[in-house]
Amino acid sequence: MSFETLKVATSGPICRIAFDRPDAGNAINAVLVAEFTAVLRSLAAENGPDGVPVTVIVLEGGRDVFCAGGDFEVVAAEGDAGDPEPLYALWQALAEGPFVTIALVRGRANAGGVGFVAACDIVIAEPSARFGLSELLFGLFPACVLPFLIRRIGHQRAHFMTLMTRQIGASDALASGLVDILCDDAEIELVRNLARLTNLGKPAIARYKTYMATCRGDPGADKAAALAANRQVFADPDVVAGIRRYVTEMKFPWEE
Rank of each mutant, 00 (worst) to 15 (best):
E35P: 07
A18V: 11
A129T: 05
C15P: 00
G79Q: 10
F141T: 09
L227G: 08
E256D: 12
V179K: 00
I122N: 05
G112V: 02
M250A: 13
F66R: 01
A89L: 12
G169Q: 08
N230F: 04
V123M: 03
V114Q: 03
V54Y: 01
L182Q: 11
L32R: 06
A76T: 06
E78Y: 08
L227E: 07
F72S: 10
I17C: 01
V65E: 04
A129G: 05
F36L: 04
I150S: 10
M161F: 09
M250P: 02
S11D: 12
A93C: 03
A158P: 00
E96H: 15
A109L: 02
F3H: 08
M212C: 14
G97M: 08
T162V: 12
S128L: 05
V56T: 07
A103I: 04
L190F: 00
V179W: 05
S134W: 03
C183D: 05
Q167N: 05
A229I: 05
N199F: 10
G154A: 14
V145G: 00
G132K: 10
L227F: 09
V31M: 11
A186K: 08
F252E: 06
V105D: 04
D222Q: 09
C144M: 08
G69V: 00
F148H: 03
I14C: 04
R216W: 03
V58S: 00
V56H: 02
E249D: 15
T10D: 01
L190Q: 01
R207L: 06
V114G: 01
A224L: 14
C183E: 07
C120V: 02
I57K: 09
Y88W: 09
F36D: 00
L133A: 06
N199E: 09
A24Q: 03
G132T: 11
V75D: 05
A24E: 10
I181E: 02
E4G: 11
L87H: 05
G70V: 01
L43V: 07
A213M: 07
I57N: 02
R245Y: 02
G132D: 01
L197K: 12
F160C: 04
A45L: 09
E85N: 14
F99W: 13
D238R: 11
K223D: 09
D23T: 12
N110E: 14
R157C: 10
N230H: 10
M212F: 15
Q232K: 14
A175M: 09
A44R: 12
A143M: 06
A225N: 07
